[in-house]
Amino acid sequence: MAHAIPTVVSGSAAPPPAQRRSRTGYILLFPGIAWLLVFFAIPLVTLFATSLQVPVPGKPGYFEPGLQFSNYATAMSEYWPQFVRSLVYAGIATALALVIAYPLAYFIAMKAGAWRSFLLVLVVAPMFASFLLRTYAWKTILADDGWITSTLNSLHLLPDHRVLNTGIAVVAGLTYNFLPFMILPLYASLSKIDPRLIEAGGDLYASPIWTFAKVTWPLSLPGVVAGTLLTFIPATGDYINAQLLGSTKDHMIGNAIQINFIQFRDYPVASALSFVLMAAILILVFSYIRKSGTEEIV
């Protein structure tokens, strides 16, 4: 390259070419960094600053900048049950989604043949309807006089004699709403597996189950990890399912944040809750990724 030849002798003029090249890199990075700065870093700092604000004496609902770390203690001592409930509900929903999605994704990727794209469209199709409407529809499906509830009741499986407005309904709603986010990454991983590897397992006298455990499952792990993250993270912060399908005893951390922000106008506590939620999810996700050992997806 012509630029590689030093042309200027005087000390101060042109920078060494290597430096110039790296500057080009920065300029190309600029839009991305600016985006992160404006839409991620600044809001995050603002959120953190808000979580430390101090109430203005005599003016409820008004706050001034401060360093009140006790907001975090208040938030956690008041809302730890909702916090634990969020993690438990989201955890169960993620596990259920994995159990439902894996066979489905496996079938679409390995067995569906010409039906592949059609089935994938069917997986995504419900997302064309609004999230809120789909959740409302579950109210009808799980109604007290509906066939699901009557069937379960005749088997004496329901302690409260109902499904709607219980924790079961909330977990069902979460599982349903985030299922496509589990299926799609699983499908992507499974469809990339070379069928000859599975055949080779059979050629080496491994049983189908053994082949699955030693070949298919490990190769699909990136999809499992991506799918569980894409389901677990939004499910933890969700509040619509708990609000529409739950009772007063099923509120999650999202409900607590919403109530504090809108009803109580307690912005510091709402911000502190959001911040703790974010931190907890980050820690869980990192330890999960380290454990599952699929670094390539991060």
Binding site: A34, L37, V38, E64
Partner: peptide, 26 residues
């Protein structure tokens, strides 16, 4: 050009910060 853009971002940042303060200041 880089400085100009940086200035612009700076202004934007200050603007955001200012509006954020306004939301909570008495």
């Amino acid at each position: 050009s880089r400085r100009t853009v940086l200035q612009a971002t700076g202004v934007l940042g200050v603007g955001l910060a200012a509006s954020a303060c306004g939301a909570v200041a008495p």
